[in-house]
């Protein structure tokens, strides 16, 4: 079991003929993901990596019953691509594109309100992977291994780092989700936590947060509100603990501004509810081991 992606995934690649889209279509296929279609306006009727290409998402969905879309479209057209996928009936949209204007994302998220059955992951994220089953993203598949730990992160490279650490220590993953480093994103920590909480294949969750915004605080409050009997263990790491206020640390959303978004409040939000926070990434393996030992 897993969340969001797996054997039932029928993937569509928007922007399949671009450099990144084409390369990662090959990589995802190699991993075993079922890719049924690609879309690039004007390139309909051609093939890329053995995948049929269509001009529009609607055509692609009608012809192939694609249910999930991954977007590699460059920033100026990415928000439009998200809305096109939703309007065509895609239920899970993963947008990897970075540097999308905030006003575009505000409009796209508003558009999605009229499609309550559609979920957006990202933008500016590495995608998601259910190890051994389906990779819908750009992560190096080799560092992930199948298991029962769910990972949620705002950072792509730290997801790889943590998955690698857990895999080396014998702790496999159910699904790993990069929610993205932008200020306006589709799915938040809380949205994904809910799914892991209900997933029978997930025993515990590793959450990797960072400075900026209050998504981590919201996540801590959500976990704290769950009944202790059914709540799954969550261990956390917060990056950017040495970052100075007012500086944007690479991710557009990673900024401490106006006294908000600092690491102390995030760490405290988890610890105050008895949820362990690792002081370093290697320590996450120890925390996971402790949790799994206690529950076993």
């Amino acid at each position: 079991m897993s969340i969001l992606v797996g054997p039932e995934t029928r993937l569509l690649v928007q922007g399949i003929t671009g450099r990144d889209g084409a390369f990662h279509t090959g990589q995802m296929k190699e991993y075993g993901t079922t890719i049924v279609a690609g879309v690039t306006p004007g390139k309909g009727g051609t093939e890329m990596e053995g995948v049929p290409v269509f001009d529009t998402v609607r055509e692609a969905v009608e012809a192939t019953r694609a249910n999930t879309s991954i977007i590699f479209v460059p920033a100026p057209g990415a928000a439009d691509a998200i809305m096109e996928a939703a309007a065509a009936g895609i239920s899970l949209i993963i947008c990897l594109t970075e540097l999308i204007p905030v006003h575009d994302m505000v409009r796209a998220v508003r558009f999605l309100q009229d499609y309550p059955g559609t979920r957006l992951i990202g933008p500016n994220c590495p995608g998601l992977i259910t190890p051994g089953s389906a990779k819908v993203g750009i992560m190096p598949g080799a560092v992930f291994s199948p298991g029962t730990i769910g990972i949620i992160s705002r950072s792509g490279t730290l997801t790889y780092e943590v998955a690698d650490l857990l895999s080396r220590n014998g702790f496999g993953q159910s699904t790993c989700v990069g929610i993205g480093g932008d200020p306006v994103i589709g799915s938040t920590f809380v949205d994904i936590l809910r799914l892991f909480q209900e997933d029978r294949g997930t025993d515990m969750i590793v959450l990797i947060g960072e400075i900026g915004g209050s998504d981590e605080e919201d996540a801590a409050a959500y976990i704290g509100s769950l009944p202790a009997a059914t709540r799954k263990p969550v261990v956390t790491f917060i990056s950017g603990r040495s970052a100075p206020p007012g500086k944007r640390m690479g991710h557009a959303g990673a900024i401490i501004s106006g006294g908000l978004g600092g690491p102390e409040a995030k760490v405290a939000a988890f610890r105050d509810r008895g949820l362990p926070v690792a002081d370093s990434i290697p320590q996450l393996a120890d925390l996971v081991r402790t949790v799994l030992t206690v529950s076993a």
Binding site: R154, S155, G156, T157, S239, A254
Partner: peptide, 17 residues
């Protein structure tokens, strides 16, 4: 110097710690 905002941020944290 690193690849990825989260990875670099974490590197700064480790150096500082």
């Amino acid at each position: 110097i690193g690849n990825g905002a989260g990875l670099v941020m974490n590197t700064l944290d480790v150096v500082t710690a």
